[in-house]
Design a protein around this nucleic acid. Structure first.
Lengths: 200, 200
DNA sequence: TGTTAATTTAACTAAACAGTCAACTAAACA
DNA sequence: TGTTTAGTTGACTGTTTAGTTAAATTAACA
């Protein structure tokens, strides 16, 4: 009953995109509403605050992209290929965004986590959640790689975390240098880090 | 001639500290002035804009801390010890700040670079400058380590950059988890990454 | 088709924002 | 000691901010 609307979804999409391209602090509720073609009253009909919208937008983005990650890190794919594909997708994704916007945007979760972790507890938690999710993909991959005799036994949890930190740092470097090419060779760097034979 | 003042220095210090603890976007010129006990008119007597103050504050912080870095990375210190000391100082620094403020703050340059690189070109450049400076310290260290036969020949520039990315990512992880303990074992992780023998 | 309830709208608030300015003050120095 | 000038002050502007509200609209459904 009552009327239907895609305003909520539009707000989530636009918010994610705008905050990624700029920053949480520099994007206003009015900006988001204007781009989403939604009036401010509707905004506050759907979301209690700007911060709540941001959290919802990031969760929505994760839910939309989860199938993609599941595919990349599928147990059906050879372990080291998963990592290489993941790195390639990161590079290509950043490059594509750079071509569209003129700017390397880095990791959206890292950016918002870095900006707001000391300020907004809900956003901090969402950032941490993403961190843990990605580390799990990597940890599983490392375990599988070990089972297949591709890498030595090691602390897989710690190593997965270190890999993800390296990747986040690389994305930050790309953003700060506004140069996606620093990500070109990411795959081999990560593979070497886990002691895998790097393909020529 | 004319009167003297430490208002400028106070503004630089307070701005750095506040932006580090919160974020660029959430700290207002009024906040900075209040904490520095300086009137807004004086602020704009010394700095043309908030963004210019931020750039100056970050440069000032680097100039003040440069002697410390020069000591840590001194050629008189054995190469691998330099890296270990650097990692220890990072851990202790973050821990100390956490005890004071209740929050892990991460790397101030990475935070501001991550927040503003797509927005403010001057801040982007300052961030990149810091990135390059730190990478130079690390690259020199790697070259010296190789000269002393401690590590294999490799692409030292690329490896230095990768190490710094790992470190930045680790600091981000600590901030997002609000847990400085993830940095405890940073030294060995980095040493293992360059193929050095990790001390027991 | 009439009722219901979900959504939309525009006009509103009150606070916070970055930045301005002309008049004032006081330290340095000749 | 008087002049110079670097620095201070507080009151100001116009804009932008997040968030509110009450009345209007419209799609779904019985």
């Amino acid at each position: 009953m009552g009327r239907t609307s895609d305003a909520k979804e539009k707000l989530l999409q636009v918010a994610f995109e705008l905050i990624w391209q700029q920053s949480y602090g520099s994007v206003s509720v009015d900006d988001i509403c204007e781009r989403a073609k939604v009036k401010k009253g509707s905004f506050y009909y759907f979301f209690p605050s700007k911060s709540d919208l941001a959290v919802a937008a990031y969760e929505e983005h994760w839910q939309c992209n989860r199938p993609k990650y599941d595919r990349v890190f599928s147990p059906l794919v050879p372990p080291l290929e998963r990592i290489d594909t993941y790195c390639k997708l990161l590079y290509e994704g950043q490059k594509a965004k750079q071509e569209k916007t003129g700017r390397v945007l880095g990791c959206p979760f890292a950016s918002v986590g870095s900006e707001l972790s000391t300020q907004d507890e809900k956003i901090r938690q969402k950032s941490q959640e993403m961190f843990d999710r990605m580390c799990k993909y990597l940890e599983n991959t490392l375990r599988d790689a070990h089972k297949e005799g591709l890498i030595e036994k090691q602390d897989f949890s710690a190593k997965a975390s270190a890999i993800f930190c390296l990747v986040m740092g690389m994305l930050l470097q790309a953003k700060v240098k506004n140069d996606s090419e620093v990500l070109r060779n990411l795959g081999p760097i990560v593979l070497q880090m886990i002691g895998a034979t790097v393909p020529a």
